[in-house]
Design a protein around this nucleic acid. Structure first.
Length: 256
DNA sequence: AAATTGACCAACCGCAGTAAA
DNA sequence: ATTTACTGCGGTTGGTCAATT
């Protein structure tokens, strides 16, 4: 068989929009399926990563707060490099983010230690971080409810207005943040092309059901999605829905 | 002003676990 | 019971930006 060449590297704004739309439609579980039907030419893995680390609503962006930093240090002392586990205790932060933070922190610390070991320099290099083994105490963590924040469990949970997009998108002139803000503010006003493309996909998808995802991802109770017992995951209520895709690529209007 | 260095972030890879066939 | 495909996790790398020299 000829192995398909998948796209790699940084995601474009268009790809992001497409991915968000398809996750809105199919939930954030069936990544291979989403990768296929979206026509993104990415692996499911890549799609998932992009979603989890970047596009997921509720992601906090920006610097960690001192509280978060302390929590990371404490939990790392407790659990080691169980990044995803640690991330579950820090709503809005991804394992990747925490991992990156930890690396940077360790490097800083190593440098500091080095400097102390070679005391030729002044000793006044105060790290902004407090000592790690301080009890953080009352983080609201019910051990059982250790589900990851990025485990949206399906499309209903998606609130695109909260999707934060990093700087490079912004530099391109129109950040995803702006996009979602626009969507939230003016459903009726289609003005920018990006906004329009999201809407376009959604409108085109209207064959899926009586009321499929509006730009604010509101799913009506009679939609194709049903919640499982745990109330966590949303699944299509019928597999015929998927099978219509699985026999081939998505309808042309979806893949663009 | 240009070059260098460091910090940060996004994305890829490989492996392991799990569910479905 | 076994195989296969998929998902999730942790490690690592590479690119970009800002600060410093």
């Amino acid at each position: 068989m000829v192995q398909q060449e998948f796209r790699k590297g940084p995601w474009t704004e268009q790809e992001d929009i497409k991915l968000v739309s398809f996750v809105g439609l199919f939930g954030d579980r069936r990544w291979d399926f989403i990768a296929k039907v979206s026509g993104l030419n990415r692996t499911g893995k890549s799609c998932r990563l992009r979603w989890v680390n970047y596009l997921h609503p509720g992601l906090k962006r920006g610097k960690m707060t001192p509280q978060e930093e302390r929590l990371v240090l404490e939990l790392h002392a407790k659990w080691g490099n169980r990044w995803s586990r640690i991330a579950r205790k820090l709503p809005g932060r991804t394992d990747n983010e925490i991992k990156n933070y930890w690396r940077t922190y360790m490097r800083k610390k190593a440098q500091e230690t080095k400097r102390v070991a070679t005391p030729s320099s002044t000793s006044s290099c105060h790290s902004s971080l407090s000592s790690n083994n301080q009890a953080v105490g009352s983080h609201p963590s019910k051990e059982s409810g250790e589900e990851s924040f990025y485990d949206t469990g399906g499309p209903n949970m998606i609130d695109p207005t909260e999707i934060k997009i990093g700087k490079e998108q912004g530099e391109q002139g129109y950040s995803m943040d702006d996009i979602w803000k626009d969507i939230a503010l003016s459903e009726e006003n289609v003005q920018n092309p990006v906004h329009a493309s999201v809407r376009h996909i959604e409108e085109e998808c209207s064959f899926f059901g009586p009321h499929l995802p509006s730009p604010s991802w509101e799913y009506s109770s009679d939609s194709l999605w049903v919640m499982d017992e745990e109330g966590k995951t949303f699944l299509p209520s019928s597999d015929q829905f998927f099978s219509s895709f699985e026999h081939g690529a998505a309808p042309a209007f979806l893949t663009g």
